[in-house]
Design a protein around this nucleic acid. Structure first.
Lengths: 236, 236
DNA sequence: CTCCAAAATTGATCTGGGTCAACCGGCCTT
DNA sequence: AAGGCCGGTTGACCCAGATCAATTTTGGAG
């Protein structure tokens, strides 16, 4: 009996790509896109799988197409700091040392557009606009990183959680449109490791916010009942 | 009577520049350097002066030539997070929003090479190698930022201080050569705001390290008596 | 030199968030 | 439907580091 298998072509049209407008490739014209199409290869990862690990030699770059990823660094004794969550359109893997400087896991099912390092490097070589785009993304990330330093170093647990909810919602808004229902695909532990807190503190803060009628904890996320109040708590 | 004034020319030869090899300009050839020379202008700042402030519209980029700067962000209530210290060779001011995303003060006397935004942007426009160099610097900074997130979110006070001393020494090594005497031009408050601690905790940790014979607190810095012990404390 | 202000140190006490531990509930497997 | 597991919540207690409060030291300015 013939097995039932879904055949995924090695590549698909960039023109149909969901992240076409936001990702690195937004800087490419129609002609370049045709060539670029053959460079990338769609790859799926299931929940919890590691896409690449810190200190691994970089063999590929990744353009996240679908799903969410956690980007993190581990200390020798197992302490973990999540340095960011990746969403569709995010470009991962750039570094100068030739090794990844953080690890990346799939949170839920994930699809990436994977580029082998060498051909991608060759393609980029003389394309000023693509390099500019990558530079722009790097600078944007640098800003986010600095904002997150402020959060980690100088904000209270309440402020951290409130700022996280708003920031996460904001990113989803620009992806799927505005909503006061905020899906949280990541675990409480992930949130804790992102905010420099413990899982218990995150949980307690959530319930505190719920008791105060500011949010409602729903299955797989939260609902922002009083966004203004959350903003006040985040105290910019 | 003729006043005694030191006349500083608007520009000096890049070829003589102290940071020629390490800074952005390391990517330029001899011909480009001649043109580049006329773009930058040496400017001096004295201790404590602010070179640019967060949210200011970006009118210039800066290449730090001499001295040390603190780069920081403030919360509305005055809490401060220092996101980094700049040393000679560091390039400051890149952003995509058109506004600076952190403030920068001189720690002690500082000399910068200042570039007006527009002409610099024009110069960079079609110079792939310069853009690549800037990109490289951005990615390097991004790594540092992520490392610092781990420190802020997941390390104890002792680890933070030990890691800071080692990291700072490391940067000075690549600038002035190896030494176990580590000058600390920044105040205790600066160190505290960099590490997400209070001034008292930094001070106490220093004295604790000194009591244990690991460092010696000297005028304007510390001396690493037992670098191996400090590395053990920093616990990578 | 003396005086003053700012920076740093030190001590005493407090507390936000961590730690430890019990428990709950959804969901998968048998 | 029973059992078990895993993620999340809740409670009791603790402690690293913050806060509050004096000193002490340092560095100019006169």
């Amino acid at each position: 009996m013939k097995p039932i298998v879904t055949i995924e072509p090695n590549w698909q049209l960039c023109t149909d790509c969901a992240v076409r407008a936001s990702a690195v490739c937004s800087s490419l014209d129609a002609v370049e896109l045709r060539e670029f199409e053959h460079l990338g290869r769609r790859v799926h990862f299931s929940s919890g799988e590691t896409v690449f690990s810190e200190e691994d030699i970089t063999t590929s770059f990744y353009n996240l197409l679908e799903g969410v990823m956690r980007l993190y660094k581990l200390l020798a004794d197992g302490r973990r700091q999540i340095v960011g969550f990746a969403l569709p359109g995010d470009f991962l893997g750039m570094n100068i040392s030739g090794r990844h400087n953080f690890s990346a896991d799939a949170i839920g099912a994930v699809t990436v557009c994977q580029f082998a390092k060498a051909p991608f490097g060759r393609f980029i070589e003389d394309r000023l606009h693509l390099l500019r785009r990558i530079n722009e993304l790097a600078i944007r990330e640098l800003n986010q990183a600095r904002d997150h330093m402020v959060l980690l170093g100088r904000r209270s647990a309440d402020e951290k959680v409130a700022a996280f909810l708003l920031g996460w919602r904001e990113r989803l808004v620009s992806l799927k449109g505005a909503s006061d229902t905020v899906p949280l695909p990541m675990s409480r532990q992930d949130i804790a490791d992102y905010l420099g807190l413990t899982i218990e503190t995150v949980s307690r803060t959530f319930t505190k916010l719920e008791r105060h009628g500011v949010i409602e904890i729903i299955h797989g996320g939260i609902s922002l009942l009083d966004p203004a109040k959350v903003e006040a708590l985040a105290a910019a």
